[in-house]
Design a binder for these strands. Structure first.
Length: 424
RNA sequence: GUGAGCAUGGCGAAGUGGUUAACGCACCGGAUUGUGGAUCCGGCACGCGUGGGUUCGAUUCCCACUGCUCACCCCA
């Protein structure tokens, strides 16, 4: 039945007219919010050199190990469809030397990302994210503001019941120490861990905290390996408590989750996720103080987050919290007689020129069918023109909700509608 | 990558080893010639994902393939 011509690629979605209105609505909301918070949009390419993601996101992450859409272009270069936004923004920040423009740079982006995964509910191969990045601001005040923006964005979109989970994953000073402690405690128990965690132990032991496997968590508890929170250096501790205090001041509620480890390697210090009971996370972010330098720029702190828009829209739909009402057609012009065909065209153009959304029937159907169509389109009024109206230079104007109809001079139509129609 | 479930008209959905594959929604047309939303009447799958097999006969049984969905992993 379905062949390659009539079947979209796996894990992609068509956003049909009814849906696209919801997308536009949410995009409008986030753009306005970013304006209020002083962020400006950046648009980066949808694909980059593979090396950027491999190094930026982290060689040991799931994204890089098995989820990238990588291919060779005709010039033999390896390129990859971006799996997330931060690496590209950092690259653009460095390449365009935005660090020279001002002390702090606040950017946002909206667009598609690609991950080669097995699709399921709320998970696509082409997903859409909205994200923010702030460069060159090291203090906890920025962390708190960015988290506040993250929450505010979800709230404004209409989401209810959002919870913030917060953690600190340390820095280049305390993380190596923590890693060493974990290795010391867990290596003797290695064979009791699941195969995934055995690998994690070698490559990124901290992520064992993230394992959902109960037996691994038992082994972890028995090993008395410290959480990263327990191993933070003094600077990281101060930063973390600063973030918490400012969040409290801002009235943002959160929960400390010492097992929260984000799946991307570049995070330092603050890490958080926005979750809803019953769903996987809708947004997540963190600080990345080493990434800009890693990408070849000057030592510059950074912090950012991303929101999964597909998930957000999906949850909104399930929560039925949307108040968005689509603006429909205002006037449908019905032709009662073929002689009035040209006359109707003139009227249609007049209406549109006056900023009134107007449409007509294109199938040469009877008046009855045209009225039916006007009704289905949700038109407020139907303008009816036929032989009579043509001869008298008038139009019939029918209000579709009240059913009342009157005859107007054609020259009076636009003014009448602009003045509120029969509601005036 | 692992596991499970499902595949019937535009959508939802019944169904049986054998005459014309229910029903609902949507859509189209009609109920006196220029009037919608209600009602009534009529129309709308030569076909039941694809390819094989079993059988006198398969949409219904078996196999393979493909696709979709859900879960795990991980994440947005």
């Amino acid at each position: 039945m379905k062949n390659l011509l009539t079947q979209r690629p796996r894990g992609t979605a068509d956003i049909l007219p009814q849906e696209s209105a919801r997308w536009q609505d949410i995009e409008r909301t986030v753009r306005e919010l970013c304006r209020l918070y002083g962020y400006q949009e950046i648009r980066t390419p949808i694909f980059e050199h593979t090396e950027l993601f491999a190094r930026g996101v982290g060689e040991t992450t799931d994204i890089v190990e098995k989820e990238m859409y990588t291919f060779e272009d005709r010039g033999g270069r390896s390129v990859t469809l971006r799996p997330e936004g931060t690496a590209s923004v950092v690259r653009a920040f460095v390449e365009n030397k935005l660090y020279g423009l001002s002390d702090v740079v606040k950017l946002y982006y909206i667009g598609p990302m690609f991950r080669y995964e097995k699709p399921q509910k709320g998970r696509l191969r082409q997903l859409h994210q909205f994200g923010c990045e702030v460069f060159a601001a090291p203090g906890p005040d920025v962390d708190a503001e960015v988290i506040a923006l993250n929450v505010e964005m979800l709230t404004r979109a209409g989401l209810q019941g959002v919870k913030v989970e917060l953690n600190s994953v340390g820095c280049s000073v305390c993380r190596p120490q923590h890693r060493a402690q974990m290795l010391a405690k867990l290596t003797p128990l290695k064979d009791q861990l699941c195969t995934d965690c055995q690998r994690r132990l070698e490559r990124n032991p901290m992520r064992i905290f993230d394992c959902k496997n109960e037996s691994c968590q038992r082994v972890l508890a028995a090993s008395e390996a410290p959480t990263i929170l327990q191993s933070l250096c003094e600077d990281c501790q101060n930063h973390f408590s600063g973030v918490q205090n400012l969040l409290r001041t801002a009235g943002i509620s959160f929960e400390i989750n010492s097992h929260l480890v984000r799946g991307l390697d570049y995070y330092t210090r603050t890490a958080w996720e926005c979750v809803l009971p019953g769903y996987s996370s809708v947004a997540g972010g963190g600080r990345y103080n080493g990434l800009v330098a890693e990408a070849g720029g000057p030592e510059t702190p950074g912090i950012g987050f991303a929101v999964g828009l597909d998930r957000l829209l999906m949850i909104l739909l399930e929560q039925q919290r949307e108040t968005f009402v689509r603006a429909g057609l205002e006037v449908f012009v019905a032709v009662a007689d073929v002689l009035a065909q040209g006359y109707s065209m003139e009227i249609l153009q007049e209406l549109r020129a006056a900023g009134i959304a107007a449409d007509k029937d294109y199938l040469g159907r009877g008046l009855k069918a045209q009225l039916k169509s006007a009704d289905r389109r949700g038109a407020t009024y139907t303008v009816i023109v036929g032989e009579r109206e043509l001869a008298n230079e008038t139009v019939g104007l029918k209000n579709l909700s009240t059913g009342s109809q009157l005859e107007l001079p054609r020259a009076a139509l636009v003014g009448y509608l602009q003045n509120g129609g029969d509601k005036q």
